[in-house]
Design a protein around this nucleic acid. Sequence first.
DNA 1: CAGGCATATGCCAAGTGAGGCATGTTTTAG
DNA 2: CTAAAACATGCCTCACTTGGCATATGCCTG
Lengths: 110, 110
Amino acid sequence: MPTRDIFNAIADPTRRQILDLLCQREMAVGELVETLGLAQPNVSKHLRTLGEADLVHVRIDGPRRHYRLRAERLRELEEWLAPYRRRWADRLDALERHLDQLDDPDHEED
Amino acid sequence: MPTRDIFNAIADPTRRQILDLLCQREMAVGELVETLGLAQPNVSKHLRTLGEADLVHVRIDGPRRHYRLRAERLRELEEWLAPYRRRWADRLDALERHLDQLDDPDHEED
DNA sequence: CAGGCATATGCCAAGTGAGGCATGTTTTAG
DNA sequence: CTAAAACATGCCTCACTTGGCATATGCCTG
């Protein structure tokens, strides 16, 4: 069984697009299919992957399944980002960019 | 040529480990090889992928290549995360979790 | 209960990525 | 100029992933 972590889930552009849509409102599979222009089984598979990463939640409504984003799950990403944010947030950032410029003369700097 | 975006770059656990190491200090390939316990060509390939996503920067020092993290590049991820952060940050969050609980009685809630 | 929706799952083919291994390249030492 | 050190690159194989297509499953209507 493959890895179904968040990093893997958001690595696919189509899945990011799905998340983007679900960020606005809950949607049924059919709506997603129509919006994405993909085949229904394909969309279902992506939703499965997202579900295994706990990024979406299903609400069953008769024969329809409404998928809703679990935005809270993305906090994991936020937390992973924390140590790095500290790096770009502090004053060293400017210095590093300056060093990059010195190391790489071809690089265009703003 | 494959996609070399940030999402893809951080999808691999080994590459995240490399980023984690480089977050602390600049390191030469040999140091990374020793720390990671992987074969050198493999490490070089991951570094290449990270480089193509502009997540690392190389400083050539004689025969050695020191890799440094470009933490600023991760701002792209931060920006991508922004719309979602708004979702989990607002008061709707608690409501949504409540709804999840109602939809999914088996789910353990804190 | 038969049939039709809305979705999920299974199977197959093609593309992609990671690791292992051998080899090429650049730099420094002698 | 030769050799060795430090990396990068090329090739191969294997496992995984994605998309397309067919089909199974669950739910609701008549």
